[in-house]
Design a protein around this nucleic acid. Structure first.
Lengths: 256, 256
DNA sequence: CCATCCTTTATCACTCTATGATAGCTCAAA
DNA sequence: TTTGAGCTATCATAGAGTGATAAAGGATGG
């Protein structure tokens, strides 16, 4: 968390969100000192910021430190009920999940991560974990790749070098060349595939959701067990996913 | 949204969260101008703030305006998985919901609102709406009252005057005296009851969750259909709710 | 009961950031 | 092209944010 140390406009506000991000990524309550350390901010500064966060409910104070706060739930609830992309995508997710019997997931990009904003299980057993809101990296995983690959005017070479090396869940280690080839494939075909990349035993196909202006709004993923998805590339699924993603993009109110 | 206009420390950070709150409360995308109007801030100031929010993913820009952003989902996810209160309360909610066949809800206070942070349905039909994260007022409703009534050293009289008049879902209008009596009752008995107050047809009992130091950490509510909950006060339910709330409070790591 | 430690909060002068009025830009629609 | 609405950039000034330091609060152990 070395950013936000530079002098810049709205520095304190940026810093506030840096603190919030650290709280979010921590899997446990953090002491003020830890927060200061991880953000790279002075303790006094951190304390002023976290107090504001707490006052507004975005941080919460406990016996053993601070965590994210309940106000985030409210904001998330508001997002879930007002986001045009999410609202428009919902029925499409349901349709493709039902038709395929697979899990349909909707991601959006937030800085250098993707966030799962909706999911529909096509299979019979609904997962009991509720991963909506999970923040995942952009690279391993089909749904993340499309953000990198389908970002127009984006230098895949530089991206590949920045990401390398990447270790997949199946043990494979990818160097810059492998990553670039992978991303080029995705860009060329308009969809990405991953098998046992982020999660062993899971295979996914994903396609970008773009608006009329070509901006990438999100990523639609369809995932299932690897053993039942051998040679997905030669099935109709990629085309289905692309079509669904296109449908969503077309239904989102034209961007300004 | 007339606050945050005063000069004060961390003004810009406070203002950022004011903007976020307006986005959250809006049921639709808001234009920059609307945001500025509702926050009472200058357009230029609003635009700088909302840009920072957008950059960090807490706001989202669409064709017809800004909404809350996807990062809130991540933070909410983090809150849900790390909040000691929520984690400790979960099994208790399940137990009391199962035992009573009613809906158990966990609220925490955020400024002058309560936020639903967890809910377990005891009945057979699970609601399909997912109201977790909903921001509700403190006064009408059992679970909100306890925050007002059980706040130690809190002037009920002043609170009652500040809140009046309140119109309940059943049409009753409460003046300051009625509100104060209601809150006094709750304080005396250690639990609050509401019948058709916020939502017609729903009756609820709630008790405060307090830590060893007497601080109110949250509110445990048990709700069901009014017609099946006549004379709840003379049943064992209030005691059950109080006991459950006490159990939760006792299991939360001692506050600092 | 006191002493010690750890964590959090208050204080304060200086610098640099946030502010807001204005002007300029972008993009549709007329 | 002109018009308009919405958003962004510019800039001087004021005053908020910063961080070093010190103090206060609370727990723990002797």
């Amino acid at each position: 968390m070395a950013t936000a140390n530079t002098n810049s406009p709205m520095r304190s506000v940026h810093r506030a969100f840096e603190v919030l991000k650290v709280l979010e990524l921590a899997q446990q309550p953090l002491r003020l000192t830890d927060l200061a350390q991880r953000t790279g901010l002075h303790v006094a500064t951190t304390q002023r910021l976290v107090n504001v966060l707490t006052e507004h409910g975005y941080a919460s104070r406990h016996a053993n430190g601070y965590t994210a706060g309940p106000a985030a739930l409210s904001t998330a609830h508001a997002f879930a009920t007002t986001s045009p992309l999410r609202l428009v995508a919902r029925p499409v997710l349901e349709e493709i999940a039902t038709a395929s019997g697979l899990t349909a997931s909707l991601y959006v990009r937030v800085q250098d991560n993707r966030v799962l904003i909706d999911r529909v299980e096509g299979g019979q057993r609904p997962h009991y974990s509720l991963p909506i809101g999970e923040r995942l990296p952009l690279y391993p995983g089909a749904a993340g790749k499309v953000f990198l690959a389908c970002d127009p005017g984006h230098d895949l070479d530089a991206t590949a070098r920045r990401l390398q090396p990447v270790t997949l869940a199946n043990g494979t280690v990818l160097d810059a060349t492998a990553i670039r080839t992978d991303l080029e494939d995705a860009r060329e075909h308009g969809f990405a595939v991953s098998a046992d990349e982020r999660q062993f035993g899971t295979t996914a196909i994903a396609a970008p959701i773009t608006d009329a202006a070509g901006r990438t709004l999100g990523s639609l993923g369809l995932s299932g067990a690897t053993h039942s998805l051998r040679d997905v590339q030669s099935t109709a699924l990629p085309a289905d996913v692309r079509r669904a993603a296109h449908t969503i993009g077309a239904r989102v109110p034209a961007a300004g």
